[in-house]
Each structure stands twice: as structure tokens, then as C-alpha cells.
Design a protein around this nucleic acid. Structure first.
Lengths: 165, 165
DNA sequence: GCGGATATTGACATAAAATGCCGATCTTCT
DNA sequence: AGAAGATCGGCATTTTATGTCAATATCCGC
């Protein structure tokens, strides 16, 4: 694994505006976007393509409503591993990647936990089942602490662009 | 605040397939999507519109690369409040909503913490500043525990659709 | 500050996609 | 089986994306 190359692209005020707009609403047509940032469609599209090529724009996704899909329970799980060996971690990550219920999984610092997971399931029964038959079954998992989301105060994918330039 | 209405839409196999595809890639054209799900463009678009109207499809967003934007540090912050009053919570949430660095903020269960935040900043210096001048300044914040993301094993917005039907 | 090289823009023409309409097909319920 | 309703595919029209090119703006060395 190599360190990914730094962005070799200069992001000016217009680019930043484009990114801000697309972060907020990815369904904007190029023409609408061009209007918003004060460009004509041609150069606007060219900038978007350049940002895609540079890897600044990673991809576009559709956000669904979990409640409308019967997925009412979101859990935050902190997990500790018994041994901090690369093999243990690799096995854990491989296994966790197989579970579509896991929306996020981060290796984190701290003495309390090694991994933080965000998991989405229909209800507590399903969560119980998931925890017992999926998570705790993974080799090396020694400590598990669950919290449940009572309210989503902020749930965004937008990055703060105010630090640019 | 009222409980939001349940989805009054029946999601069949094709709809589920549409949602699966769009979750994965929101930049698909209607024609590409139609091909993938085995429909002609007309009914495919009709279904997408119906899913939007029903609120199942919430919105479309563009995902950016935080590293390419110089945002190298992601922190998970667990926060405890001194008093569990609606006023304290409301004030905290209002304030946190002002900070673009906060990508996620959940009110959670558990004795250790009341809120879980995901925060994105350029580096540790900025994080230090953010914590001291933003978070700990908020009235009622009594305990703060920070963890830092070492690796993003899974970072998705996709919901598990396997529980449908 | 001047001139040239480079990059970026806007307009236009063309290709592709979205959208609306309609008759045909498939479902469902009696 | 038969009729009502829903869903489909094809087609015409409108909107959008894309590529080209000349004009303009920006940057650089002198």
C-alpha cells in the first residue's frame, strides 16, 4: 500500500463553488450548475470533469430514507480486539466487509476500542441477531459496546470546504 | 414533531434493484439504469419518480475525496452533557449545526455519552482548535472523548436492502 | 510594463438523454 | 373467463450533454 498522491490540481474560487453545489445536490444538471457558479455550460462541464479526473470528485450516490425502507435502528458499535496483529485486523475487516448492514467501519485510536462501526438494521431483534451471529463470531473480537441512535441531528456527506485556499 | 408516515408504496423486485443501483452509482443515466434493471426508459423513469415522490429516494449527493482537499483528520467524538434537559440538548444541537466540520451528529443511548460526532478537519492543530474553541465552549458539555480515524475500512452511504420483502 | 505563450472562456453544432403521450400487454379480482 | 386497472414499450418532442473553435483573459519572462 502506497501513500496516495496529493492533488495536483489547483482549486480556485469557482471550483470550490462547484464542489459546494455538488456536495449539496448531485442531481444538478450542468446547465443549472453553470448558472449557479456564473459560467457557461462548456467550461463548467470541463471543470467538473477535471475535478473527477483529479479524484477530488469521487462518485455520486443516491441517499435513501432508512425509515421508509423499514430500517429503523441504527447502532454505533465500539469493538476491541484481543490481539493487535495485522492478521487479526485483516480477518476482521474482510469479514465485516461482507455485511451490508455495516455502513461505516473505522479503525480508530484509543484504549477503549479498535473499531467503530455504524450498523443499520430493521429493529432490535435483528440487531440482536446481527451482533450475536455476525460480530461476536468474528475471530479476535473481545469487547463490544453498543449505542443506539435516538436522533440524527446531522447526517451529511459534505466536507468543510472553508479550509481551502 | 409528529411521527413520519410510513411508506405507502410497494417496493417490488425491480424497485429494489433500482434502489440498489442508484445507491451504488447515482450518476447512472435513466437509460443505463433501465438496461440494468431490464426495463425500457419510460417505465424506469416513472418508477424512479415514484420512489422520489414517496420519499424513499431522499436526494443525490456528490462524494468528495477528503485527502485531496487537505482534510486528513477525521475524529470520532463522544460527548456527555451535564444536564439532560431539552433546553441543553436543543442549544447544543443548534450550535453544532453551525459547524461545517461536523459531518454527523447523533443523539445516542448509553451511560458514557449523549452525543456521537464525526468531525473532519485538516490536521491535529485544527482539531485542537476546533475542540477547544467550538465544542468545549458549548454550554452543558461536560465530558469529551476523542478518537481518531486511522483507516476507513468501510465508508458507505448504502443501506442494506436485503430485508425488503 | 510589454509582448507572447498558455490557459480559459463562450457560442455554436451535434449527439445523447429525459420527458410526455398513446396504444398494447400484463395483473388482478370477481 | 372477462373486465378494470396498472404497467409496459415505442415514438415524438424537448432538454441536456458534449466536442469544436475562435475570442478573451491570464501568466510569465524580459
Amino acid at each position: 500500500m502506497s501513500i496516495s498522491a496529493k492533488a495536483l490540481i489547483k482549486i480556485d474560487k469557482i471550483d470550490r463553488n462547484i464542489l459546494e453545489q455538488l456536495q449539496q445536490d448531485g442531481s444538478l444538471t450542468n446547465q443549472e450548475l453553470a448558472d449557479k457558479v456564473g459560467l457557461s455550460p462548456s467550461p463548467c462541464l470541463r471543470r467538473v470533469r477535471a475535478l473527477e479526473d483529479a479524484g477530488v470528485i469521487v462518485r455520486q450516490v443516491t441517499i435513501l430514507d432508512h425509515k421508509k425502507l423499514g430500517l429503523s435502528l441504527t447502532a454505533i458499535i465500539l469493538i476491541g480486539m484481543d490481539r493487535h496483529t495485522p492478521e487479526r485486523f485483516a480477518a476482521f475487516e474482510r469479514q465485516v466487509g461482507e455485511y451490508p448492514e455495516v455502513q461505516e467501519c473505522y479503525l480508530i485510536t484509543g484504549q477503549d476500542a479498535d473499531y467503530m462501526l455504524k450498523v443499520v438494521v430493521p429493529d432490535m431483534d435483528h440487531y440482536h441477531h446481527f451482533l450475536l451471529n455476525r460480530i461476536t463470531r468474528i475471530q479476535g473480537v473481545s469487547g463490544v459496546h453498543s449505542s443506539f441512535v435516538l436522533r440524527r441531528v446531522i447526517d451529511s456527506t459534505a466536507l468543510p470546504l472553508g479550509y481551502l485556499s
